[in-house]
Design a protein around this nucleic acid. Structure first.
Lengths: 341, 341
DNA sequence: AATTTCTATGCAAACGTTTGCACAAACGTT
DNA sequence: AACGTTTGTGCAAACGTTTGCATAGAAATT
């Protein structure tokens, strides 16, 4: 169990009666070294189970080939799907990944960012904590190492940002409802202006405008915490109106499922009386009945793209720090909650 | 953007007209150093934003304070809950965490294990890939660094193993059904003898025996892939019997939800005619209707416990590698699918 | 006053790797 | 035969930290 030391270059060189540098070069396939020597070295290295000490290497070259990832909450399906993409793409490109959680705590987020740079990660992938307002510290760190934001991003931080095309996705969802013949389309969104909520709301408005449907304030409901419970609560409010909506667009699946539960309780027919569309394509959307029409966000693609852009920056360093937004396409998955036959 | 070098001990020492060693000791609170010097050093260190180069440190001390984690699939709620626990506990104890996915691929699993040790992690937390049979490579690595297994474990690997008390959890679930007055309790389990499935099946058998209920082969159904679809399919088989069961215990929530869907289709009353119990307490279990009675597995506790045991081993190294199984308690969450009034 | 003990500090080696430079040996060219 | 070129190898420094040992000066003891 005690940590046996690994074979080192020195040991190899002694065994082969070569210098350390020759052995090092041989293993790194340096052109100066003769073929025969290379083969001898490689053979013995394999035999003696040599593995380079990455610490010594990283220590010298100041490159660790480690990427840091900071997310608000790892046990969230969408997040872990993104992480999956990150892990896969990083591995493919020879990088290792350290993951941390900010727990939606801004202070902790900066702390993690600091220990990660201290640790020597080559770059950081980050999804911002909710209500991140003080970006100063982050900007400081951005001066030292490249950061790529994904999912929860902020225009205040000048760097590459990978997001889904929230606005268009919402537009498509609402357009779909309009094409069903719905005219009084309610939206359930977040109160505080998170990037996502804002964009989705914008898409909602654009769809209504484009199709010449009046925007009715009464049908625009907001909540601090966009949860299943609140989806249900707000739907109850909608049902108590004298003129009920004929469709509900909830900006998260959970809220949409809450809506369905509420509609169920009051025996409202879905989608005939009121159609429902959510956002995320979480597993639950297929479990609820009727199955929920929702926007599929390709999480792993976001992850992969983020890694790709970060590595691109790492390997072609430039000094101009600038905002660059990359939008990942989504698709609308139509299910029973908006399927009119 | 270009990687500015960090402040080093050398720079601090020059500024303070002290030697590097004195500065180092001052920062590490060595008793040899006078209070006044310590304060001077600390002050400047803070001012110049000094952070120790962890690579140089780890390189020298051969301790990285990094734990490696290998899981079959990160985007699985239970897994990511465990990861959450691991991250929290590790952070609390000053360790960082590198996560990798084996994708249930045995070869890749060993590969990851190798690159992790090469990288210099102090220890590894691992949940085994499905059908892990060739443990030889793993045993080799176990000789070099400590490993703690969790969730998907194997008795062939002599190390600490953190699992939930599968058998007892299943026993409690079935006992609960018996107490409802159910007598013909079917089980939906896995064909291949995975650790989890086997234990849960054992709990089922023990409960029946203890209450003197005959075990009927016809009510014991197995499937390769314990999915929602297969839960539905097997339930259809149960419904086609001349003597139907009066309860179904599915060893995963997904299979249980499949069962509920099937029962729904045939208008079987849940739980009056047939009660259903699942296993996992996944989010879906509250979304399906009726809400599913299920076994809650405290994922974060598993994660925290695993970290605790690993660090314990790291900090008190012993040479005796031995199996030690730690069981985490579960609890049965009773919901509508088995709630008889 | 001479000695010992203590306190605070500095020197230098070590960790394993990479790499600029030097340099022998072998070869090719006049 | 003398010179330049190429090829393969080795020397030694560097990265930033920790730490055993040495030591200078102060304080305490004789």
């Amino acid at each position: 169990m005690s940590k046996k030391r690994n074979t080192t270059l020195k040991e190899l060189s002694k065994e082969l009666s070569l210098s350390i540098s020759t052995v090092s070069r041989a293993l790194n396939d340096h052109p100066d070294i003769s073929q025969s020597t290379k083969e001898r070295v490689r053979k013995l290295a394999k035999q003696m189970n040599y593995v380079p000490n990455l610490f010594a290497r990283g220590f010298r070259s100041r490159e660790t080939h480690i990427l840091g990832v900071i997310v608000p909450n790892i046990s969230h399906l969408f997040t872990s799907t993104i992480l999956k993409g990150i892990l896969e793409e990083a591995e493919l490109r020879g990088y290792r990944v350290i993951i941390s959680e900010s727990n939606n705590n801004e202070v902790k987020q900066v702390e993690m960012l600091n220990t990660m740079t201290q640790f020597g990660v080559d770059g950081v992938l980050m999804s911002l904590a909710r209500k991140t307002t003080n970006v100063e510290e982050i900007l400081k760190i951005l001066n030292r190492i490249p950061i790529v934001l994904f999912d929860k991003v902020s225009s205040k931080i000048p760097c590459t940002q990978i997001v889904i095309n929230e606005e268009e996705a919402a537009f498509n969802a609402v357009e779909h409802l309009i094409e069903l013949g719905k005219q009084r389309i309610a939206i359930i969104k977040e109160t505080e202006n998170s990037y996502n909520s804002e964009k989705r709301y914008a898409g909602y408005l654009r769809a209504l405008n484009q199709y010449g449907i009046p925007v009715r304030d009464k049908l625009i409901l907001s909540t601090e915490d966009i949860s299943l419970g609140n989806g249900r609560r707000l739907t109850n409010i909608l049902l108590s109106m004298k003129k009920r909506p004929d469709a509900i667009f909830a900006i998260t699946d959970n809220a949409a499922i809450g809506a369905i539960k509420a509609l169920h309780k009051f025996k409202v027919k879905i989608p005939e009386e009121i159609a429902v569309v959510g956002f995320s394509n979480s597993i639950n959307s297929t479990i609820v009945s009727p199955a929920l029409t929702t926007v599929d966000q390709p999480g792993d693609k976001i992850g992969r793209t983020a890694v790709r852009f970060l590595i691109q920056e790492l390997e072609n360093p430039t000094n101009d720090v600038m905002t660059k937004t990359v939008e990942i396409k989504t698709s609308l998955i139509v299910r029973d909650s908006s399927l009119m036959v």
